[in-house]
């Protein structure tokens, strides 16, 4: 039986009826058409599906859409403002923090929570905050530099 849910995504309110077993990531991608959130492993390991729910980084492949009823979500699409990249996005561009780009949305969302809580993380703290995100192109070094770039820019 479908049930109604109401979620705020990137500041916009959406109301839909969903099957309880629908995963949150499927809701975002297939119902709302927000394909910036990726599905990598579908087993809560890789972090590609990371979004923010009520300010906390979570893996949306391991959440039901109905669990997010009433929540505020932030996805990749909500970061740029008026055509201007968010400092973390800019960092990944400037510092070559991506190769194929598949892991990038998840990396950026996980980094987003880190920088909200810790404005100037050191390398160890960045690596710990991104522990739940895999990059199969293994560009971790530049990913760390990208986050450092963003931290510097935000603090300026």
């Amino acid at each position: 039986m479908e049930i109604p849910i109401k979620v705020t995504v990137n500041g916009e309110v959406y109301e839909h009826r969903v099957e309880p077993r629908m995963l949150l990531v499927t809701f975002l991608r297939e119902v709302l058409g927000l394909t910036g959130t990726h599905v990598g492993c579908d087993t809560s390991s890789c972090g590609a599906c990371t979004i923010l729910m009520d300010g906390k980084a979570v893996k949306s492949c391991t959440l039901l859409a109905v669990q997010a009823d009433g929540a505020e979500l932030l996805t990749m699409e909500g970061l740029a403002r008026n055509g201007e990249l968010h400092p973390i996005q800019e960092g990944f561009w400037r510092e070559h923090g991506l190769q194929c780009g598949f892991c990038t949305p998840g990396m950026i969302m996980a980094a987003y929570q880190l920088l909200e809580e810790n404005a100037s993380p050191d390398e160890k703290e960045i690596r710990r905050a991104l522990e739940g995100n895999y990059c199969r192109c293994t560009g971790y070094h530049n990913i760390v530099k990208s986050v450092q770039y963003a931290a510097k820019k935000i603090n300026r």
Partner: peptide, 9 residues
């Protein structure tokens, strides 16, 4: 435990 995302949920 796990990673930051796991610890949030």
């Amino acid at each position: 435990i796990g990673d930051p995302q796991i610890r949030n949920m």
